[in-house]
Structure formats: C-alpha cells, structure tokens
Design a protein around this nucleic acid. Structure first.
Lengths: 163, 163
DNA sequence: CCCAAATTGGTACCAAAGTATGAGGGGATG
DNA sequence: CATCCCCTCATACTTTGGTACCAATTTGGG
C-alpha cells in the first residue's frame, strides 16, 4: 500500500521534473541510477523493518531465559570432594614424554591444535606431531577418544579444570 | 562491488534497449517502475542476506550472556563416576529438537559423525546437519567444545556412559 | 665424544569436520 | 489449504585433524 503510493508519487515527481526542465536524453541514465539507488535503500529499509521484529523477539525470548535462576534449578551436585586423581602409574606406563604430556593437558581442555600451538608457543606442525604420537600411545584415532581415554586413565593433571 | 557492477550492467542494458527500440517518451515511467521494483527487491534481498548473519550474531551474544552464569556458578563436575544429572530446564532453554538431542547424546560419547550415522540409521549428511545446528545452538565451533558444554550444562541423558 | 631420545618444524596427502544452501516430504497449526 | 517447522539428504566448499616421512637441533648419559 504505502509502497505503491510512494512509487506513484515518485513517478509523478519525475514527470513533473520532466515538464519543468525538459529532460535531455543523456540524463536518463542518471535518473535510472537515482531511482535504483533510492529504491534499493527503500528495499533495505523495508527489509530491516520487517527483520527487526524478528530480532527483537529472539532477544526478548532469551532475556526472559536469563532471568530464570539457573543455579537453583540445577540439582545439587554432589561435589567431587575427591579432587581429580592423577594416576602416576598409569601415566608412566604410557611412556609419554614431558612435552607430550603438556600437549595432552591442553588437549583434554578441548583446545584445537591452533590453540594449543598458541598456548605452548609452538607451530601447528609440532602440535600435530605431538598429538599424533599421543593418539598412537593412547591407542585411539581421534582427539575426542583421546580425551575420553585420558579421563578414564586419570592422567589429567590435578590443576586442570574440568568443565 | 557486485552491487555496483549490477547497476552498471543494468544501465548498459537500458541504453542498449534505448538504441534498439527508440524509447518513446511515455514509456519512461514504465522503465522507471521496473527499475524501482527490481532494485527494491535487490535491496530487500541484500538486507535480508546481511540481516541473517546479524540475527545470528545477536542470538550468539545473548546466549553467551545467558550461559556464562551457568558455567560459573555450577560447581565443576569433578569425576566421571558421579551419576550425570540431566538438567531438564537447561535443556529446554536450548530449544534442541528431539533428533538433535539424540545426536547430542551420541556426540558426547565421543563418536564420530560416521558412527553416529550408523547408530541412528542416518546418512552422514544428515548427521552433519544436526551436529552443525547443535554447535550453533550450543554456541561453540567444534564437537569437542560441544561435549564440554553439554557436560557443563548437564544435558547428558542419565543413561549415557561417561568414561 | 658419540649415540639415542626428544624437540621442533616442515611438506605432502588424505580423511574428517564444519558451513552454506537448497530440495523435498511430512506433520501440526492457524 | 497455506504456512511453518522438523527431518532427511545432497552438493560444494573450506577448514581442521591426522598420518607419514624427513630433517635440523638439543640434551643427557655412557
């Protein structure tokens, strides 16, 4: 409705200008360009107008979520009084080198090779080498399984945070 | 870039038509209307294209706000042996669909996409779709981090084995 | 000193993970 | 019936992960 009206108004305006200034042939492109630009903007405006409600809704929804006292709804966790145990014997059996162990500790935090490389000031190549050796020593074929296994074997350093 | 190119191409096309059909004065309105319509659509298209990412990002941001307190205030899960608690409230807030949840349960077991596909009788494509959507909803960018987050949020089914 | 292991990194290559997009069907809902 | 959401699958593509092999350097012990 509004849109059609605006279009009509614009055409009318153009016609009026035409009468007033007797448009030359070579200025057609200019007008077309102006029209294109103007209506592109109109389109963007309209679209964003429609989109905004959607965005708002989402935000609102989530904000409501935020107000819910999350902690209370979580059943009391029987806190691991038992600090994570580092099974030194299991670790020694694996024969991990110092560096490999460091990498492992980063690995179980869920970090990517790139992140590990950054943390330990290594190149990604080196991290890959270490990780590959780790996977072999742990007898797995993916970092996810390696994390599992490391936890099962309790060879995660006491200080390491476990989410 | 693309936009400017399209505009140029359109003007050129118009010029060409002008030479070919020797546009009469009264048809200018028609062309202007066509241009207006076309570029309005272009504007809408472009805006919606851009808006989508923006919407995504907004959701992302707010989700972070929502989830940070969860991670912080819930005592870290120390050891595997304590029975995992399924926080239904947390799960519902994520808005995971039934299928996505099933995939998540497989995911946290450390299974690969192929293994999940085999277990759920799906194609790898479908699993990828679900996993991708899961990662988005959990606001992470890798399956490893998704596993972490799922544990932190305690949305792992009680039956699930944790190594 | 020399050897062995460890550390670091590089290249090359393949597999897996992840993203983007769209088609098509089905079920619920207005 | 139209519309929306979910589910399924596919293609195409980019990014990570992982393997294999090699090479230079360091380090500690015999």
């Amino acid at each position: 409705m509004l849109y059609g009206l605006m279009l009509a108004a614009f055409v009318f305006l153009l016609k009026w200008l035409q009468w007033k200034y007797l448009i030359a042939d070579h200025s057609v492109e200019f007008y077309v360009g102006a029209v294109a630009l103007l209506f592109t903007l109109l389109g963007i405006w309209g679209a964003s107008k429609l989109m905004r409600t959607q965005t708002r809704e989402i935000v609102k929804e989530v904000v409501i979520v935020k107000e819910v006292p999350v902690v209370k709804e979580v059943p009391p966790l029987r806190d691991g009084e038992s600090a994570p145990v580092f099974d030194k014997a299991a670790w020694e059996k694996l024969g991990l080198t110092a560096r490999e162990n460091e990498v492992l500790q980063q690995l179980v935090k869920g970090l990517s090779n790139a992140e590990i490389a950054a943390n330990l000031f290594l190149s990604i190549s080196t991290v890959k080498t270490h990780v590959s050796n780790l996977l072999f020593k742990l007898n797995v074929n993916s970092r996810v399984k390696a994390i599992e296994k490391a936890r099962a074997l309790r060879i995660i350093e006491p200080g390491a945070a476990i989410p």
